[in-house]
Computed example of a mutant assay.
Amino acid sequence: MSPHDPQQVIFHGGLAAAHYLAGSYDEAINSALSVLRFRPTFNGARRLLVAALAQAGRLDEAQRELERLRNFQPDISLAWIEKNVPYTPGPMKSYLEGWRKVGLK
């Protein structure tokens, strides 16, 4: 894949989600960071990054990323995630667990 391919955001975003759902949080973090290097305001990648950092036990980093996310998405909440993130119940449970670890209500 070319380092200048604009589709890298989609590829790395999907890879980040797959790693997260497989419980490979460090890999999910790396893929989400790749997305954010190309598109720093891509909220979906930052949301996944926050949850993955929390699941990996890196709570201080997760808190910092949550604050960055709130600059772009001040209304982020567990209710917003449940309503807008298109995960089925099993994956949603894992995703919400990460958010609860970082203290999101």
Rank of each mutant, 00 (worst) to 15 (best):
K105V: 11
L59Q: 04
S34D: 15
S24W: 06
L66R: 01
M92L: 12
L21C: 05
Y87V: 04
P74E: 05
V85E: 06
G13A: 14
D60Q: 03
F11H: 10
H19M: 07
L36Y: 12
A54L: 10
L69Q: 01
L21I: 03
D5K: 06
G14H: 06
V50T: 04
Y20Q: 09
G90E: 15
E67P: 10
L78V: 08
Q73D: 13
P74Y: 08
P91N: 08
A45H: 06
A28S: 14
L33S: 06
A51M: 07
Q55F: 00
H12R: 13
Y87S: 02
L96R: 07
P91Q: 10
A32N: 04
N30Q: 12
S77Y: 00
G14N: 13
A52R: 11
A45S: 09
L96K: 12
N43Q: 13
M1T: 10
P40Q: 05
Y87E: 03
L59C: 07
P40I: 10
R64G: 03
V35I: 11
Q7G: 03
L36F: 12
G98D: 09
E65K: 09
S31F: 03
P40G: 01
R46H: 04
H19V: 02
P74I: 06
V9I: 14
M1D: 10
S34A: 15
I29R: 13
A18L: 13
K105Y: 06
Q73T: 04
G14E: 09
E65P: 10
D26S: 05
L59Y: 02
E65C: 11
A28K: 03
P40Y: 08
K83P: 05
G44E: 07
A62M: 00
K83R: 15
L59N: 08
V102E: 00
F42L: 04
M92V: 00
D5V: 08
A17Y: 06
T41A: 12
S31V: 02
L21Y: 13
R47I: 11
A16T: 02
P89H: 05
P40F: 12
L49W: 07
A79V: 13
D75N: 14
R47D: 00
I29V: 12
Q63D: 09
N84R: 00
G57T: 03
L66W: 00
W99Q: 03
H12V: 02
